[in-house]
């Protein structure tokens, strides 16, 4: 029997132009405190983010966004994830500043959570739930 992978691995990234990183660093700290393994890759195009997620064998991909582009680039991200076959077994979350009315659309394209503000417990709960759904009960 393979040893259980007990630490949730989260890859955190931002889209190419995002200049703010207080949010992503804050969330990285929260998730480390919650016992998760965090890989911070910085600013990348959607293709590169998915490539890194595959390389790192990440359970979760988290995107931090402040300055727009969440729908356009989020759609691109999901498209690449689907092409590369990781959309169904990886949880995608997004947080930052964007119009609240975009939340339903972000969920529709495949984000398990889209946060405008959240504390550690809310983010952790969302990740755990999304992983259970994505990876099934086993």
């Amino acid at each position: 029997m393979a040893p259980p992978k007990n630490k949730i691995k989260v890859l955190l990234a931002q889209f190419p132009l995002e200049a703010h990183s207080r949010g992503i660093i804050t969330v990285a700290g929260m998730l480390k405190d919650a016992g998760m393994e965090v890989v911070l890759i910085g600013n990348e195009l959607p293709e590169r983010i998915i490539e890194a997620a595959i390389q790192e064998d990440a359970d979760v991909v988290g995107i931090s966004t402040y300055c727009g582009g969440e729908l356009a680039l989020g759609t691109d991200l999901m498209k690449v994830a689907e092409e590369k076959g990781i959309k169904d077994n990886t949880a995608f979350l997004l947080g930052g500043i964007f119009p609240p009315r975009n939340i339903p659309e972000l969920e529709k394209i495949g984000f398990s959570g889209a946060f405008l503000s959240a504390n550690k417990e809310e983010i952790v709960a969302c990740i755990e739930k999304a992983i259970t759904v994505k990876k099934g009960a086993g």
Binding site: L17, L45, G69
Partner: peptide, 11 residues
């Protein structure tokens, strides 16, 4: 440029 997609004139 591709990197600018969705972010022109937002902020």
């Amino acid at each position: 440029e591709p990197e600018s997609r969705g972010q022109v004139a937002t902020v």
